[in-house]
Nucleic acid binder design. Structure first.
Ligand code: ZN
Ligand code: ZN
Ligand code: ZN
Ligand code: ZN
Lengths: 142, 142
DNA sequence: TGCGTAAATGGAAATCATTTCTTTTTAGAA
DNA sequence: TTCTAAAAAGAAATGATTTCCATTTACGCA
């Protein structure tokens, strides 16, 4: 009722439960994309009990509602990221340190026009090594 | 030594084994993206024995070599697709009938310039319903 | 402010696609 | 034909994610 996230949750018809808010807040503080299990571990202390399924469920709901975004990882596990940038955009993700950088380009308007059918969603993601990890690797090589 | 696929495999330093070629040929005939298990089922008859791990292994190698492409599916399972279109492009996939349509647009040159780091790969995929499935659904609704 | 109800949660258990391991077989170069 | 690294089989493991259901909770409403 006073918190920004609570408002957004209301918009999605999701109850503002303490755990849901905690998950959201944790992700919002986190600067890298994160796995459900990591989130679960970090929040265990703050709650007497917290089920892993609860974390999975919430992340999925939040992602479905557009409050957080999924990261497609080569290892095929689930990762989520909260991006303060509220307009439509995509991400460059570092597969080493998990940093995320915004990509403000999206060619979907163009593409959608040339597709024969109904577009339901689209994925645009660039994978690589961020500047820091890129340099580190370069330096580390013999 | 005579087959087109064999040549390509040679280029990737992969032996042209009967099973590998069969997998490749099956995918090439298939008009939709397909799962490892489906490929395995369809090829069981042609070989006395065919291990599911063999199918998984081959698909991964072929994808790594760029001979086939992976499809990112909402259900998070693996799907592969052989696209005759040999130049760089992306896909519109129907999540209902699994049809694939080429998208000849890719903004990666632009994007890569604005990314601070090393780009290793990129994903561009449009998910939706193809014309046929789209109409079918529309008609089916009350 | 107290109720009622749908939504949310915990915890244990299941799932099941994918991977790993080890032994045996085979493609392809010499 | 011989040799060797690559490929394949088969069984077993894996482990992230999901399911189930009993219990608790948020919150709209009287
Ligand atoms: Zn972003
Ligand atoms: Zn977009
Ligand atoms: Zn294509
Ligand atoms: Zn591209």
């Amino acid at each position: 009722m006073h918190d920004q996230h609570s408002q957004a949750l209301k918009g999605l018809k999701l109850k503002a439960t303490p755990k849901r808010l905690a998950i959201l807040n944790l992700l919002a503080e986190e600067s890298v994309y994160t796995s459900p299990e990591e989130i679960w571990r970090k929040l265990q202390g703050k709650f007497g009990r917290l089920g892993l399924p609860t974390v999975y469920r919430n992340l999925e709901e939040l992602a479905a509602g557009g409050m957080i975004s999924k990261v497609i990882h080569p290892n095929r596990q689930l990762y989520y990221y909260f991006c303060p940038n509220r307009h439509h955009h995509h991400h460059f993700i570092c597969i080493s340190c998990r940093k995320v950088e915004d990509i403000d380009f999206c060619g979907m308007e163009e593409i959608t026009k040339n597709v024969s059918g109904t577009v339901l969603s689209h994925i645009v993601q660039v994978n690589g090594l961020c500047r820091a990890c890129s340099n580190r690797q370069e330096g580390g090589a013999s």
